[in-house]
Design a binder for these strands. Structure first.
Lengths: 317, 317
DNA sequence: CTGTTAGCGCCTTCAC
DNA sequence: GTGAAGGCGCTAACAG
């Protein structure tokens, strides 16, 4: 029994011949170790939990795919915890943590009380993605304000001076801050360029293509309409393009549109946008978790990773 | 110790007072049972594995969301096993099964050797989705041939007689048969209506919007082009719409386009398509698994569930 | 009703 | 280098 365990776990102190004999027996009996037992005795679950809201949204799916991509080559399984309402967050995290169901947690976008969580289990590795508020855990983030500026500056640089903004609700139940910050960057860039900021050209609605389409209708139907629109999320931008088509407006000639995220559909649709390397960010988070788990700690210089942002020029600006 | 266990598991044979006392202690010590130990002792992992290829494709994501939706209200966790190449299938399944890492498996679309798997563990509950080839396990499927006919008949009924077909590769490494069968249904419907089948109007390419766009270009640039196109997958249909736009063809006036699946993006894009209730199929599969796990077996009348198909009329036909 | 005890299957010392 | 034995934390069966 002991020797078999040694063989399985690659202990060096086993004579080669015995090793082969054990291996043969394993093969013959079609034996394979019970995972629950290893967990109990080893104190590890070989599982990483990913906590995510709306995991059907392209941005989350792509990040998830990045995480999966990395874990795939490790011996860790990925357990998906989906959050559908803000109230669930605390409870879900609590049960996952106290029940010891995962060796590490990757939390996507969701705001949470990191002090409380840390108290619940100070040793549990947690990597946070797309959430700047968390200080106590390493994170992979972008600078949304800079991103908002980048997009707006690009529009200005292309000759636009009448620019509007469409996004989801700044005050949303989950407390996501992306649109708020991108909008801040937008206004900043406008101010920096000495351009006027027109509230009539800015609308915020639900996070849905329909809502964005509706917002765009309202803005583009005005007597005086902007020549360019910065839409804070790619999925919404697709709705805005639809609205432009509805109104018989040509993109980009009549209205230029720039999105944010660079989801796969943006590529298909020819949407000009700000790329934030979604898949890659998932890979980085997953790799950080793996390294943490392997070394028992994460070097300080990897505490907060800022992903780069860049304009992807396609055909809507 | 024993009593605590009884309290946690809601055994009736505990005096109310003691129960309260135990509960209080649990609260005070912030105790919560170790999941690995329960697994080992109880022989259950409270985990359901979902094996899926390309889980970033909308159709898989939506099914996955349906499964998650159901599991969410149960005490089962969802472990995601992503398959990226056909060769991985057998190995992945084998390790998951022998290591006892899940109480049940839901396998999406992937073909696999059910005889072999059954031999590996005859008692493991497995529910198959979107795979008609599997006989030994319950499945949730659609009739792709009927679906192909349905789409084609709808086109015919709308007055089209020159109809083309675009799909992904009929012989693909994973052995998916959807497009093959939808194409069969397409030809069948044509024949039934006494309409000619024109191979020049049928193209098969990679499963990507780009490839579909390319195929559509080829077909629509011909001197004599079809007035309608049946595209076997929604994502590809979006590429076909793009191609029509490229060529200055109006949809549906110059070319009508019907897709298949009814992914969310189809709704946004106004794509007319054949709906196959993706999310719902995930829910059904998840629920079947839960019932199986709860009752120890699945009633025969739930062995194979055929999901209904229906035309969703939007604006591309 | 409740405390005690024997596994669940593996890993890890400890002697040999 | 190898077999034996303790313990991981829990559940279930057994006495009281």
């Amino acid at each position: 029994v002991g020797t078999v365990s040694r063989v399985i776990n690659g202990s060096p102190q086993v004579r080669e011949e015995t090793r082969q004999r054990v291996l043969a027996a394993i093969e013959e009996l079609n034996f394979s170790p019970n995972s629950a037992a290893r967990q109990l005795s080893g104190g590890k679950t070989f599982t990483i939990g990913v906590v995510s809201p709306f995991f059907t949204f392209p941005s989350f799916v792509e990040r998830l795919a990045g995480i999966q991509d990395v874990l795939d080559m490790s011996s860790y399984d990925l357990v998906l915890y989906s959050i559908r309402a803000p109230e669930q967050i605390a409870r879900r995290l609590h049960t996952v943590i106290t029940q010891n169901r995962a060796d590490g947690l990757i939390i996507l976008a969701l705001p949470f009380d990191d002090g409380q969580i840390w108290l619940a289990d100070p040793t549990l590795p947690i990597v946070v993605v797309d959430n700047i508020a968390v200080e106590r855990y390493p994170s992979v983030v972008i600078d949304d304000i800079a991103g908002g500026q980048l997009a707006t500056q690009y529009l200005i640089q292309q000759g636009h001076s009448a620019i509007g903004f469409i996004g989801d609700l700044i005050d949303n139940p989950f407390g996501f801050t992306s649109t708020r910050n991108r909008f801040a960057g937008f206004k900043q860039a406008l101010a920096d360029a000495g351009l006027p900021y027109n509230p009539d050209w800015c609308r915020f609605g639900q996070h849905s293509q329909e809502a964005a389409r509706h917002s765009a209708h309202a803005i583009l139907s005005r007597a005086k309409r902007p020549t360019a629109l910065f839409v804070s999320i790619d999925t919404l931008a697709l709705g805005v393009i639809a609205a432009a088509n509805d109104l018989g407006l040509r993109v980009p000639d009549d209205v230029a549109i720039i999105g944010f995220d660079d989801i796969q559909a943006a590529g298909y649709s020819g949407l000009t946008t700000v790329r934030q390397h979604l898949f890659w960010s998932g890979q980085i988070a997953g790799q950080a978790m793996l390294d943490w788990l392997a070394n028992g700690s994460l070097p300080a210089d990897r505490w907060r990773t800022y992903m780069s942002l860049e304009i992807v020029e396609r055909s809507t600006v």
